[in-house]
Design a protein around this nucleic acid. Structure first.
Lengths: 471, 471
DNA sequence: GGATTTGTAGTTCGACATTTT
DNA sequence: CAAAATGTCGAACTACAAATC
């Protein structure tokens, strides 16, 4: 195609030449950002190639590179060498998932909570903590990375998952999300790249955007991310890290197999990547899954930040997570903990510690597992997916649908029908795919009865929309 | 001076030509970083001008610009157009201030705590909270920016300082440092500039470094930052924000006067800056200082993030701070709260709320003020500085010393003598100054007796060193 | 106060790698 | 498998702004 073809084949985006001010690259980036935000450029639209747009605007093509790069860092577009530059699937809206207020009529199948029915046990432990003679010592600035006895309890807790570490190599922080923020700030720089599953934790996508870290989507199979694909991407781009949730990937429910962990660890070692291992669902997998051996941290401790939150396993409202890291990350991690938190409330940590040491935490876990089993059973009755290979106790399910429409419109549709669900578009780390899914939270209703009501609505509407064609 | 003068007048830094790999700019930056970290290039060393070094290495001078820029973003060096490029005073070490373990023999006059003697009152409130019938509701994922009744209590609390806002325009986060991290992530980008006092909060310097935000030091007088100087800097550079602690600047104890607030607000409005108003010491100033009127937030609400932590006023171990922001920052701020915290423990917020609503928080404040008055009185007996113009109840004092040595060596010296103090170098936002100080924490000893012991050691040693020549 | 020194910022150039055709 | 399309990255060029002398 000749370079001047834009007369015959109109470019998908023709910025107004006269609207451009100097500096050109900035002005151009702002124009592009505006046209994406306003919806004028729809997700997945292919933008003009750098050279073509440069020719049209009569500037050097690397000026376009710069403008595109700015927008790419903001997560608005993504570029593939050889193919072109495209508007991101999630460009126009925030995909942050949090417990927003929704109508109380509405059944929550979107945000994943953690069977809050077990909280009375936690409340009891909180009361016991208040009887402690050393209560006042929990109220000062000391021990910013956590009181020693809190850390030891944490190590005890994680030993069940196979973690073997020293209290010097860990810190207590305010939940998994907080741990991710600390890790990204401590070990990565703006412009760095982190490899992730094609569908990955939506809040990780969002926080990466905020920190200007680019995600590199890596294909996977039913055993997790494919080591070869990871290795290939590292050859092609400079990749600095990998983010994985091996015990139960969010949103796909994939469990990384023992062998796959070893293969992935080998690539990570070879390519000298930093592994962020979010093992929030370790309690569901260790001791349950026959194939489970140990976290990846144990395979490559010097290159791993292991994150173990108690918000799914014990209690979501007490913001306590453990971070475990190798010696070479220690200084940077601890500095980031200071800079983001100063410290985490020792009171919350004390309650979790009390639960762990008294054995009540295990009771809670058992009860949550029971509830998860029941919930998954209910789900399977509504949607008997013969090919479900994910975690059998997952707190959410990944439901394939046939759909070509807009993800957010679909979510609104269901919201109107009385249930909240999340469309797979929210979880896309890169380009759009053919296959579409809904993530259905099983752990967020007040009762299993309510869950059934929600799934009933879901099934009916999927039938009506002709989107669920599996028997 | 001819360009080739490096033969006659040796350059302060002559990187090994052969050690350079491609990419040149990166390799050069790493070399420079190494030579600074190793101490080979001492703080305040003037580096060769870009063109001179370029000539020496036979590359274009903008390649040097790039290498220098990289190091500047890391806070290792700073550049002044017309004057040259210099190694930062704090380049080689981290200045993060946190409550590290120090020998129990040692008197803590470095880290500023908050008269932890009042914590029994807080412990009582914690116990009362556990009796609440709605305890379990504090343990779930709901209300990520804070429960409505917690927010209302926060607004009540801040009303005493002159804050008038809506619960929609605030969030509860985990302490002031956490609030700063959230604000920087939400409203600034890497490479942005924030104006600060020449001596400013050390942890703000550190966190800005981590977020790759550059600080622009602005001179001030006994009423705070000078509006003209701020205005001038905005003319010269693109400045995006200002960081101020108007009620009692850390470390200088300067209180920004009513009029100065207005003048500064005018410049901030004119230059369209974002004001980060860290008002952690509002409780010491509002209702005490006759000149006090209201926070700067009230003057320019649409351009301000107001941060009000309870860790100095009520309890340091409960990590609770309120952030108040205008409508145009709301969306970005709330998103950042999700991405860094998900939420702050409602249990901690409930205890603070209980303290506020029961009036006990005010009791705590009164007790801390009493202690602060006594501590300041003791300090003045040891060091009768006639010219002390700062806050009379400040939790720390800013002691001028005559010294030309290395700040960290001086700190070690005192540590060996049995006290921890912080040298003014830690608080430098830019180039070194002539005047040197020590920041002496008054609120961190277990008793006023211990404070006296510490000040005794301090005074003796300053005399021995001939650094304290004021009667 | 004008020339010089020094740093900043936007743009262009060229070599190169990958993907598509 | 070669050619074309497309994006990436390091380096150079140029205009300019501020500080110094």
């Amino acid at each position: 195609m000749p370079i001047n073809s834009f007369v015959d084949y109109p470019m998908s985006w023709k910025p107004d030449r006269d609207a451009l001010k100097r500096p050109l690259y900035l002005s151009l980036a702002l124009l592009l950002e505006h046209d994406i935000a306003s919806g004028y450029l729809a997700p997945s639209t292919k933008l003009p190639p750098q050279r073509e747009l440069a020719d049209f605007l009569d500037v050097n093509f690397t000026t376009i590179t710069r403008a595109y790069k700015l927008c790419e860092l903001k997560g608005l577009i993504y570029a593939v060498t050889g193919s072109g530059t495209f508007v991101s699937p999630n460009a126009a809206r925030s995909i942050t998932i949090s417990k927003d207020k929704i109508s109380s009529e509405c059944v929550e199948l979107g945000f994943v909570a953690s069977f809050e029915q077990t909280n009375p046990i936690v409340a009891l432990a909180a009361k016991r903590v208040m009887e402690k003679s050393y209560l006042e010592q929990l109220l000062d600035y000391n021990d910013p990375t956590g009181k020693p006895h809190h850390k030891i309890a944490g190590l005890n807790w994680m030993r069940a998952f196979g973690i073997d570490a020293d209290i010097e190599n860990m810190a207590i922080v305010s939940g998994a999300q907080n741990a991710l923020a600390i890790t990204l700030l401590a070990l990565f720089e703006p412009g760095n790249r982190i490899a992730v599953d094609i569908y990955t934790y939506a809040n990780f996508i969002e926080i990466s955007k905020m920190f200007r870290i680019q995600l590199v989507p890596i294909p996977g199979d039913e055993c997790g991310m494919l080591p070869n694909e990871l290795d290939n991407q590292c050859l092609q781009l400079e990749v600095h890290g990998v983010f994985l949730m091996p015990s139960c990937s969010n949103p796909t429910t994939v469990v990384v197999s023992k062998n796959r962990k070893k293969e992935l660890a080998a690539v990570i070692r070879k390519r000298n990547l930093i592994l962020i291992e979010d093992d929030i669902y370790a309690f569901l997998t260790a001791g349950f899954n026959a194939d489970y051996d140990q976290p990846m941290f144990q395979l490559i401790p010097e290159q791993t930040v292991y994150i173990c939150s108690t918000s799914k396993s014990v209690c979501s409202g007490l913001r306590v997570a453990y971070i475990v890291f190798g010696e070479n990350f220690k200084e940077r991690m601890i500095k980031a903990v200071f800079n983001i938190n100063v410290k985490t409330s020792s009171l919350d940590a004390e309650i979790i510690t009390e639960l762990i040491l008294s054995g009540k935490a295990n009771e809670v876990v058992e009860e949550k597992k029971q509830l998860a089993q029941s919930a998954n059973h209910i789900f399977s009755e509504f949607f008997p997916l013969s090919f479900h290979t994910g975690h059998p106790l997952s707190f959410y399910r990944w439901l394939p649908i046939s759909d070509n429409g807009d993800g957010s419109r679909m979510e609104s549709y269901f919201l109107n029908k009385g249930i909240r669900v999340f469309h797979s578009d929210r979880f896309l780390s890169g380009a759009s795919t053919q296959d579409k899914f809904l993530r259905i939270a099983l752990a967020s209703t007040n009762s299993l009865e309510e869950l059934k009501r929600g799934l009933e609505i879901l099934k009916e509407n999927l039938r009506d929309l002709n989107m669920y064609d599996i028997p």
